[in-house]
Structure formats: C-alpha cells, structure tokens
Amino acid sequence: MILAVGLNHYLVLSALIFSLGVLCMATKRNAIGILIGVELVLNAANINLVAFSKYNAGVGDGHIFAVFVILLAAAEAALAIAIFMNFYNTLRTIDVDRGDELRG
C-alpha cells in the first residue's frame, strides 16, 4: 500500500526539499536568501541520512553524520553572515548581483 510510510517516502520528501533549496538558491538575489537555500539543501541531506540509518541496518552512523552536518551548517551560517556584513559594508547592498567587481 502506498500510504504505509517506508524509506522511499522519506527519500522523495528529501528530493523535493533539495530541489526547492536549489530553486531558492537560484532565484533569490538577497545573499541571505541564498544562505536559506543552502540550509534547505543540507536539511534534505540530513533527512536522507537519518532515514537510511533507521531503515537500513546501520549502527547509527547516519545520526553521527547528521550531527556533523548540522554543526557544519551552523559554522557555515556564522561565516556567511560575517561575509555578508563585510559585503554590505563595502557595497551598501546585499544584492549578490551587484558584487561583480574584483576590486574591494
């Protein structure tokens, strides 16, 4: 029965969220919007890891990987925001399409 939830449901959900994250990265011109897209993509990957850890005979490796992904996402967000602040201080805007000069 298709309504009984199995591994595939989680994988499809993750694929959808991943695509939405990519779409978000592609359509937003606000730098923080792009960061939000990245977070979506990472979340999609995490769903995969945890679902595989639950449905295939893992020993919890998926959980560990997911913990590291969350950790790296947090680190990445902190750095990205710091870079955006610098970007804004230099260009007085957060529109990524305006950051096309090589000179700072």
């Binding site: 595939n8 499809v12 959808l16 695509s19 990519v22 449905y55 295939n56 005979a57 893992g58």
Partner: peptide
Amino acid sequence: VAILMAVGISTLVLTAEWSQSANAPLK
C-alpha cells in the same frame, strides 16, 4: 531545472534496489 532535478532524483530513488528491505525499520 528544479523540477527536472526533483523528478530525476525521485525516479532514481524509487527504482533503485536498496540492499535491505526498504519498508520495515530493521533496527
């Protein structure tokens, strides 16, 4: 691109043969 990607990944996932039974949590 996003729609292509979603459809592509979903098809890949649904047609793949996972090593274990994919519908019952094993552990």
